[in-house]
Amino acid sequence: MCGRYAQTSSIEALAALLGATPIADFRPRYNISPSQSAPVVLTEGGERRIALHRWGLVPAFATDESSHPLLFNARGETAAQKPAFRTALQKRRCLVPADGWYEWRTIGRFKQPYLVRRVDRAPFMFAGLWESWRRPDDSDLRSFTVLTVAASADLAAIHERMPAVLPSEHWDAWLDMRVDGGSLAMRCLGGEPQGVFETIAVGARVNQASNDGPEVQEPASEQDQPVELTQPRLI
């Protein structure tokens, strides 16, 4: 599951890393939540671009924006069979830049938030899918979802699922729509090897999506207590 993440790299750094042209400006974000806009990397017209899309995929067959649940995650193992995702897996794959994501570990009735990031603090890419949906006023809603996989052994104690992190050697293939999406997903959604990521218990500020500054990543202090949540706080 991935219901919150951070993307704090500059637009210039991401453009250089990915060899992409930014077509939208964006600022560092420390607490991105579903329904908000965030940068994605896609290939259109033979050019690799960085654009802002809404997190929460609206399938092409939807009759209105609210006719489906907010599809912010898609299981990598079944995306090729699901009507909401299978066409996008073949024709509209994207990379979702990130510097970290948040998971909540259940402790009795409480949930402790954790920041998950690379040990070397480098940015990384989630495997994503995007769609374009035509609104009644003829404007386009561009949206995306993040694929998930079973958690790696060093993260499974926090949550049984994790976002699918694509190793850099698979970035080009993921953005090449000539490559079959189903076989590609089976081949390259295994994620990074064990030991690449670290987890840091953080304070309760991250529970509120309106808190979007670097303070949400501060390690939990002795005064911080796990919060009682009856449902995941995603928005």
Rank of each mutant, 00 (worst) to 15 (best):
A173V: 10
G128D: 01
R29N: 15
A173I: 12
I200D: 04
P226T: 04
G45H: 06
G191F: 04
A80W: 12
V146Y: 02
V196W: 09
W174K: 01
R75Q: 12
G190E: 00
S37C: 13
K111I: 08
A60E: 10
R205P: 05
N211A: 11
P113Y: 03
D140Q: 15
G182T: 15
R93C: 05
L234M: 12
G191N: 05
A173C: 13
A51W: 08
A13M: 12
D25W: 13
A156S: 13
G100L: 06
R161G: 01
A127Y: 03
F61D: 06
S9P: 08
V165W: 04
A15R: 12
L115Y: 06
L141D: 01
D25K: 14
Q217S: 06
A88W: 05
D138V: 10
M1P: 07
R178E: 08
L52D: 07
Q36C: 11
D99C: 10
G3Q: 06
P113Q: 08
Q36Y: 09
T145W: 02
P232H: 11
A13Q: 11
R109C: 01
A204E: 09
A79Y: 08
A150W: 04
W174V: 01
L115M: 11
R86M: 11
L166F: 01
I11W: 14
E44L: 12
E103N: 06
E12A: 15
L129F: 08
F110P: 04
V179H: 02
Q7A: 14
G56N: 05
A122F: 10
L42Q: 14
Y30M: 03
E12S: 15
E131T: 04
S143P: 03
A204R: 03
D180E: 07
R178S: 15
R178I: 08
T8I: 13
A62R: 08
E160Y: 15
D154H: 03
E215D: 09
A127K: 02
N31E: 02
S9N: 08
E12C: 13
V58P: 02
S9V: 06
D138M: 11
Q112C: 02
R118I: 10
A13K: 14
A122T: 12
A80L: 12
T43N: 09
R29T: 00
V116N: 00
D180Y: 01
K82W: 01
A16Q: 13
P39F: 01
E192Q: 12
D180R: 13
P59L: 09
L184W: 02
A84Y: 03
A157F: 14
P232L: 10
S152C: 08
W104V: 02
P167T: 09
I11R: 15
C94E: 02
A122W: 07
P163F: 00
E222T: 04
R54T: 10
K91C: 13
A204M: 04
A15Q: 12
A157C: 09
S35D: 07
A98W: 03
A74F: 04
A84F: 03
A220C: 11
Y5S: 09
W171L: 01
D25F: 12
F72Q: 03
E215G: 10
P232E: 09
A80Y: 10
R134D: 08
L70I: 14
